[in-house]
Design a protein around this nucleic acid. Sequence first.
DNA 1: TAGTGTTACTGGCTTGAGCCAGTTCTATGA
DNA 2: TCATAGAACTGGCTCAAGCCAGTAACACTA
Lengths: 260, 260
Amino acid sequence: MGVTSRHVHEPASRRLANELRGQIVGGDLSPGDRLPSERTLAETHGIARNTAREAVRLLTDEGLVTAEHGRGAFVRAQPRLLRFGQHRYSRKVREETGLSPFHAEVIAQGLTPNAVLDRIGRVQPPTHVAERLDVSPRTKSVVERVNWYFVDGEPVQIGTTYIPWKIAEGTELATGDNLGSGDLYARFEDQGYAITYTREEVTARMPTRDEARDLRMPGGVPLLVVTHTGLDAQRRPFELTEFKMRADHSGLDYTMKVDN
Amino acid sequence: MGVTSRHVHEPASRRLANELRGQIVGGDLSPGDRLPSERTLAETHGIARNTAREAVRLLTDEGLVTAEHGRGAFVRAQPRLLRFGQHRYSRKVREETGLSPFHAEVIAQGLTPNAVLDRIGRVQPPTHVAERLDVSPRTKSVVERVNWYFVDGEPVQIGTTYIPWKIAEGTELATGDNLGSGDLYARFEDQGYAITYTREEVTARMPTRDEARDLRMPGGVPLLVVTHTGLDAQRRPFELTEFKMRADHSGLDYTMKVDN
DNA sequence: TAGTGTTACTGGCTTGAGCCAGTTCTATGA
DNA sequence: TCATAGAACTGGCTCAAGCCAGTAACACTA
């Protein structure tokens, strides 16, 4: 709507941040390069060390830079954005690849996926899960499986899957992580639940400190939170996964009928 | 994966931030309440004013608090999250309400929508738009319409719509904003383009300074960026809107077939 | 030549002080 | 009683100085 006269009385920390940003965006500083130290920036720009530090913090908040205690501040490589579409849940992809939706999508985009089952157990579901799966929120009515997902060795998302106990009981869905070819959704088909529809609820927010640590997130990067509910041909919900995706690594790409 | 012993040598700024956060989350400090001033916090906690200031900045970065020059720092009300589904583009909703997708969705959720056409003109499209609309990126092959969207008087998103010139030329799509009942998509149907599919590409990132200003975003709130492409029954793309949505106000809720 | 210890670098964080600029409140005068 | 000006509050930002803790580089000894 309006233009702002930017450099009218710009504080020194912001001016330095702008200059450094220009060097990064312009290519004078490349991914992996170390910035001059706080003390060097302070000296060469005639400002206080804390003012220089504030400038670098601004760039960190923008995701352009990461500072490491005792080592320095480095220009971040902007990671390649993975795109996740709904076809990753289709039988076609599952049968052609024998892989999980995550693995199929990442490999299709030329990168190296890895997943680790961090935790599995029978639990009482959160209310929002119970509502969507039509199970009791007051009893241990679901199995919870927590997976960590990596691309080229870097954590990119965490997925917490809830499966109604009545579906999972006595099957490998409730036990280990060796789910065989076609992964989770092939086992659901074995149980009579062929995923036909997916409901994707999407929000974004900044990570908590624990989430930022777990996903090794630099400053200035939000989380994309996707609550996926799998439904069969009769639109019965039979599993729900809440994904926390690093927004610098992950995007969504869905095509759908508007009156589904 | 691991647990962290939190309070082992916690810096004073973070300890104060934790205490204040506890008061906010616990209800001792309510939305709209003013925090004690930086100077008061410093005095009552036996720390430096800058240390208190850093504590408040941490809460600002988390979106819990907004600081206002000369006035104070206030606890933010957490806004109610609007949910945008694909049915907002359907003929059923359009005919039942006579409204735009945005208006229909917001009213359905009990709030008050408003939209303002900020800019309209024939332009040369960005590359990613040209690719999706199958038009030339080198000529003025599209009409660009920029809308600002408000809920209860607060800006919540900006939508930039691109329409191929060959569709828009000589119609009200290319002129003003008085589009009549059913808004944009009714006029597209007039031209023979009935939206049947939508492609939604979703990412999240922190806003630029200009975007934060335009959308009046507090600290610690990301943008949900949605690139929507409208396609007709023959899957021809005929319009594209890039939405920048405040992630504290907006979420998406799509149900779709997995093998569309 | 390799290992270890020390030095010199780095970022993390705090302090006390100060000044600038915006907002609010109070007092005074018309 | 109302309006205006000044005082006192508020956050924004910088400065110089210092100490802590992590990392890297260098020198010395076996």
